[in-house]
Computed example of a mutant assay.
Amino acid sequence: MKYTEEQILAKAKEIMKDFRGKYYREECVDGAFYKKNDKMISGKNEGKTFSTWTVGILSLADNSDFLTISDETGEPLIYQNFNTFIFDVEKDERGYFRVGLPRD
């Protein structure tokens, strides 16, 4: 394990702040767990295996989303919302964003 849970939670808060902008609340990040060999089920890394952290994200109407972060790089791999839509996550000069969703 390269990162600690505390480091991953801090990274998740940074990512979620970029995603949600003015609607961000720090309380939306709700714990993390580590998985040594996590096979990606979708997105640009589909079929590849990584050591990952999965972070629970509190969403609308008591639902939970999941942010998967690589333990090797500390960067996000995918974001899965409670409707099971899975998005790749990328970063540009404005910050992190979910590929395929409009940005503010």
Rank of each mutant, 00 (worst) to 15 (best):
M1A: 15
M1P: 12
K2E: 04
Y3V: 00
E6Q: 07
Q7C: 03
I8Y: 04
A10E: 14
K11I: 13
K11H: 03
A12V: 00
K13E: 11
K13V: 07
E14F: 00
E14G: 03
M16F: 06
M16P: 03
D18K: 04
D18P: 01
D18A: 04
R20V: 00
G21P: 01
G21N: 13
Y23N: 12
Y24N: 00
E27H: 00
E27D: 10
C28P: 00
C28I: 15
C28H: 04
D30N: 09
G31C: 01
F33W: 10
Y34K: 09
K35Y: 04
K35P: 03
K36E: 15
K36N: 07
D38E: 11
K39F: 05
K39D: 05
M40I: 10
M40G: 08
I41N: 10
I41L: 07
G43I: 15
G43W: 06
K44V: 12
K44F: 02
G47H: 13
K48D: 07
K48N: 13
K48S: 10
T49I: 15
T49Y: 02
F50L: 13
F50W: 13
S51D: 13
S51L: 09
S51G: 12
T52D: 06
W53C: 09
V55L: 04
L58E: 06
L58K: 15
S59V: 01
S59A: 13
A61P: 05
D62P: 05
D62N: 15
N63T: 13
S64L: 12
S64K: 11
D65M: 07
F66R: 04
F66A: 07
L67S: 10
L67F: 08
T68Q: 01
T68A: 00
T68V: 12
I69H: 06
S70W: 10
T73Y: 11
E75P: 07
P76W: 09
P76E: 09
P76T: 05
L77E: 08
L77H: 05
L77D: 05
I78C: 14
I78S: 14
Q80F: 01
N81R: 00
F85S: 11
F85K: 14
F85V: 10
I86G: 06
I86D: 09
V89S: 04
V89I: 13
E90W: 09
K91T: 08
K91A: 00
D92P: 03
D92T: 05
D92V: 06
R94V: 01
R94D: 13
G95F: 08
Y96C: 05
R98V: 02
G100S: 05
L101P: 04
P102S: 06
R103M: 04
R103K: 07
R103E: 01
R103T: 02
